[in-house]
Design a protein around this nucleic acid. Structure first.
Lengths: 243, 243
DNA sequence: CCGGTATATTGGTCGGACCAGTTGACCTGC
DNA sequence: GCAGGTCAACTGGTCCGACCAATATACCGG
C-alpha cells in the first residue's frame, strides 16, 4: 500500500529537535535555551522558524519564555499535558519507552469501562446504532489493518456516545499516541480484533441502556486487550535488556 | 494580596481570538481561515504574529494547514487533546460551561482512586512521607486558599507516587483547567479541604501499601468532593436558565 | 472531455531593522 | 559601605518587504 509522504516545515524540525533534547534531558529543567539569534545560526534557519518552534514548546509546557530574559526549560513532568504522551512513547531511536507504554495502557484500561457505562446511560439508542453499523462491517476474513480501523471507530463512537468531552479529548490524545506505533499495535492485538463477540456484547449492553453490563463487557474486553499488550511489553523489555 | 500582572503578546491575543471564534463555532469545521496576509490587515498585526498563532492552533488540533491551500478549521471534538479543556470550560463571557465541568469532574472522579491505589503499590514509603509532610502543614485554622494549595500538592505527590506518567500529564492538564476558576473552587470545596481526616486516611493507606484501602479512601474523598461540585453546578445551571 | 499550461493565490522562508523588557556593571550620594 | 540611580549590553517581541514553494483556477489545444 501507499502512504502519504511526510513533509516537515523547518519550524517543525526545530521543534522536534529541541523537544527531543529536552526530553532526553540534554537540556535539563532550569537550563536556559540558547538565544533565538544564536539558535538561528546554529540551526541555519531564519529567526521566524525558531520563534514558531519556541512558541509551540511554550504551549506544550516545555519551556518558559519571558521577554528580556532567557528562555528556560521547565520540568515537563509537572508542566506538560497529555499531548506530550506521543513524544514520550517513542524515543529518537524508535525504541518504545516501556514504562510510558504501561502508563498509557493502564489509563486506557481504567477509563474504557467507564466510557462504555456512560454511553449506555447518555445516548444508548443512537450510540448502539452506530456501534452496530461498525460491527456489521467487521468480518473475520478482513485484513487485520481494516479490523483495527473499525475497532478504533467503535471506540470513537462509544466515546462520543458517552457525552463526556473530557473523555473525548483524552481519547484523541491517546489516538495520536497510537499513530506512530500503528503497525505494532496491529500485530499485537490481532487476536483481539478478531473476537467480534466482545464488540457485539458491548453494543448490546449499550442498546439495553444497561450501565452495569456495558461496564462489565467493556472491562472484560479491555482487560484481555491490555493483558496482550502487557505481555508484549514484558517480552520487549527483556529483549531490550539483553542487547 | 498582590498578583502578577498579566501580559499578553500579540500572537497570544491572535491565538485567543481565533480559538474563541472556532470554539464558538463562528468558524465551523471545514471552513477556511482568512489568508494570513488578510488576517494581518484585519487584526492590524504583523504576519509573524499571525503565523505564530496559527502554528499554535495547528498544534492544538484546531486547524489544518497545508502549503498552497487555505488553512481550514478542524472538528476540535475529534482532533484536539486534553490541553483544550481549559479553553472549553470557561467561555468568552466568563461563564462556566456546565457540561464541560461535569465531564472533567467525572474523569477526575474515576481516575483519582486508581491513582491512590497505584501509589500504594508503586512507591508507598516515599510517597507517604511526602503526603504526611503536606498533611502536617494543614491546620484547620489556615485560610482556605492555603488549604487548597496544600490539597493540590497532596494530589500532586500522590500522582507522582503512582509512577504513571499518563496520570501525571492528565493531572497537569486538569490543574491548568482549574486555574481560571481557582477562587470558585476555593469557595466550592471549603468544607472538603477542612476535613483533614480524609487526607490522613489516604496517606495511612498508602504507607501500609494497602492498595485496596488507598483506593477506597480516595474514592470516598473524591466522591464527596465531586458531589459538592455537582451540587454547585446544578445550582449554577438553574440560575443560568432563569436569566 | 481530457490533459497540459499560465497565472493568481496561499502558506513557508528569508534577512535585517527596530521596539521593549531584563540584567549587570558602574557610578553617585548619603 | 551601601541603597539607589544610570547606562549599556543583552534577551525576546514586532515590524517590513522580498522571494520561494505548493496549490488552485481559468484557459487553451487536442
Amino acid at each position: 500500500m501507499f502512504q502519504a509522504v511526510s513533509k516537515q516545515s523547518l519550524s517543525d524540525a526545530v521543534f522536534d529537535q529541541l523537544r527531543e533534547r529536552i526530553m532526553r534531558e540534554d537540556l535539563r529543567a532550569g537550563d536556559a535555551l540558547p538565544p533565538e539569534r544564536l539558535l538561528c545560526e546554529l540551526l541555519n534557519v531564519n529567526r521566524g522558524s525558531v520563534r514558531e518552534a519556541i512558541k509551540r514548546l511554550q504551549q506544550a509546557g516545555l519551556v518558559h519564555v519571558r521577554q528580556g530574559g532567557p528562555t528556560t526549560v521547565t520540568d515537563y513532568r509537572r508542566q506538560a499535558g497529555t499531548d506530550l504522551l506521543a513524544s514520550l512513547l517513542v524515543d529518537a531511536q524508535g525504541r518504545i519507552q516501556v514504562h510510558v507504554a504501561r502508563s498509557i495502557v493502564r489509563m486506557r484500561q481504567v477509563l474504557s469501562p467507564e466510557i462504555a457505562a456512560d454511553a449506555a446511560t447518555h445516548a444508548p439508542q443512537i450510540t448502539a446504532d452506530r456501534l452496530d453499523a461498525i460491527v456489521a462491517k467487521m468480518v473475520p476474513a478482513a485484513p487485520t489493518g481494516t479490523l483495527q480501523e473499525l475497532a478504533l471507530s467503535f471506540w470513537e463512537a462509544l466515546v462520543e456516545g458517552s457525552g463526556n468531552i473530557a473523555y473525548q479529548l483524552a481519547f484523541n490524545s491517546l489516538r495520536r499516541t497510537y499513530e506512530p506505533i500503528r503497525e505494532l499495535m496491529t500485530r499485537m492485538l490481532e487476536q483481539e480484533f478478531r473476537n467480534l463477540e466482545s464488540f457485539r456484547a458491548i453494543a448490546t449492553a449499550v442498546r439495553k441502556a444497561d450501565r452495569g453490563a456495558a461496564f462489565e463487557q467493556a472491562r472484560r474486553y479491555i482487560n484481555h486487550n491490555s493483558d496482550a499488550i502487557y505481555g508484549f511489553l514484558d517480552a520487549y523489555e527483556r529483549r531490550s535488556n539483553l542487547t
